[in-house]
Design a protein around this nucleic acid. Structure first.
Lengths: 188, 188
DNA sequence: TCCTTCTATGCAACTCGTTGCATAGACAAG
DNA sequence: CTTGTCTATGCAACGAGTTGCATAGAAGGA
């Protein structure tokens, strides 16, 4: 049910349409949550039916009309209730790690390209996060930190940056290990 | 479908029952994948029906009988096919990060206990991983690294260790931020 | 003897998430 | 004037994952 809460937070930060939410989930919110537009539209519909959100039709020029969603009082209360309820610490689901252990029963060297591809994706994400940090928080254009929400968004972004850095360093470790195994002789 | 592959890898490393698999998923494999026993039993049944696994009834003394599963030729081939197919880099789903951003619309200081609780869980996991590393890979009792599988298991464990260390450091950052906001005055 | 704990397996119902498909307005390029 | 791209919304089907419940043998303690 955490998608509900992620939507509530995002709409409290700024009201928007399902389409806009989907784009946010690809970007900033994508640091810590993902969702497709189909899922978002379905959940938005249910949340309106439950009275957590309000819809407003917005006419636009040069593009199709949209529906703008915003959070109601009960929606805010539902978020607050969730915030005060303890949650389970998350656990990872990392396909690539499964592949790495599985490579013992195949050819480890064949994984090198795949791992390098993942490493590049994480390097790109890191660069993207760092650019966002400079733009929104630490750059000369960024506003002085007066806002609580801004501080909290920044600390979450720092988490994303730390995660990408850690992952890149680990993938370097993985690559070194795979190269070592390759040099030691295939099938050894 | 990645649970299938995680099960194949685990059973190739050592054949075992559904119950044993569930315990492994709580422990070592839990570094990178989680699953409940209900899910495991269901998937095991399907994989046997698909010819990827073999079952063998094993009588035991002092405890109920069990079914031991092992990987067939087609099972191994299915794993190899997956290993050679590129996968999408994973994306995080981190509820706590949603909570942190959501705290801007509630009381940030109220999150401190929750974050400290999570930090303790991650410290415990780190200690557990480090003990396992000493026991199986770097301690005096550990066997010399002759096995490819052992090297790969170790590099995955190092990934788990790096993840926990990074997470603890980030949660320290989060706590410092929450304390700073609290000191700056609630409602500011 | 009863209660609890550990080992061991499983069904049923439900929710969550993914994939594929479909529609439609506006604009730009060829 | 057709094709492609971007904005914008949605259905249907399926597969993955969670939650609650149920059963049962064996051991140990109250």
């Amino acid at each position: 049910m955490a998608l509900d809460h992620a939507i509530l937070v995002s709409l409290l930060e700024r009201p928007g349409s399902g389409y806009e939410l989907a784009r946010r989930f690809e970007r900033s919110i994508g640091h810590f949550w993902t969702a497709t537009h189909q899922q978002i539209y379905r959940v938005l519909g249910r949340m309106v039916a439950d009275g957590l959100l309000l819809v407003r039709e917005v006419e636009q020029q040069g593009r199709p009309d949209k529906k703008e969603y915003s959070v109601t009082g009960p929606g805010r209360a539902a978020l607050a209730a969730w915030l005060h309820k303890p949650i389970e610490p998350e656990s990872l689901r990392h396909d690539l790690a499964v592949k790495i252990r599985g490579a013992a029963f195949d050819d480890p060297a064949a994984l090198i390209d795949e791992v390098e591809r993942h490493r590049q994706v994480h390097r790109d994400r890191l660069a993207h996060y760092l650019a966002g940090e400079l733009r929104d928080f630490t750059g000369p254009e960024a506003p002085a930190p007066q806002d609580v929400g801004q501080e909290l968004q920044h600390v979450v972004l720092r988490g994303g940056i730390a995660y990408e850095r850690m992952t890149i360093a680990w993938l370097d470790d993985v690559l070194a290990t795979l190269h070592r195994l390759e040099a030691a002789g295939p099938g050894a």
